[in-house]
């Protein structure tokens, strides 16, 4: 397998992972906007996390920010898979920001709220996976 092909596959995998993250974050955004954090997969802990003040920044649900971030990653990874070099460059800072945000939210859940939201943990796992995929992409001298 050539390096170029391997890179394309990694970006396609990253796009699929981001799509899963987008679905997760969109679901949480809908819950936040409709106020229906009660459903939350039947978990009181989830209810506590999504109902906390940490779930919003300046009145904007963090899930919505997450959905936008995942959508950006999905789009950029798709473009990168099709050979757009600029998309590859833009992808890295977004994933780094998502990684840092994920660490913060894990800290909040573990040490502040003492409750875990399964959708948030799923999102954290996807972000870690995305970070791993981006690290695994071989460097290139592209157009």
């Amino acid at each position: 397998m050539t390096v170029s092909r391997f890179r394309t596959i990694l970006y396609l995998v990253a796009a699929i992972v981001a799509l899963a993250g987008l679905a997760d974050a969109t679901y949480l955004s809908v819950q936040a906007f409709t106020g229906e954090t009660l459903s939350c997969g039947g978990s009181p802990d989830c209810f506590r996390v999504l109902g906390s003040s940490y779930s919003k920044v300046g009145g904007i649900p963090v899930a919505l920010v997450g959905a936008l971030a995942y959508f950006s990653v999905f789009s950029l990874a798709t473009f990168a898979a099709f050979g757009y070099a600029r998309a590859r460059i833009l992808l890295i800072p977004i994933i780094v920001a998502m990684f840092l945000a994920t660490l913060w939210f894990l800290y909040v859940q573990a040490f502040v709220l003492h409750a875990y939201c399964r959708y948030c943990l799923f999102s954290a796992a996807l972000t870690f996976l995305l970070a791993g995929l981006v690290i695994a992409v071989p460097s290139s001298q592209e157009r």
């Binding site: 969109t26 959905a67 999905f74 473009f79």
Partner: peptide, 19 residues
């Protein structure tokens, strides 16, 4: 060339239409 644009557009529409 247009496929990434179409894919991103379809996903954006789906993400907006569901909610």
């Amino acid at each position: 060339r247009h496929l990434p644009f179409v894919t991103a557009g379809v996903v954006a529409l789906t993400a907006l239409a569901g909610p």
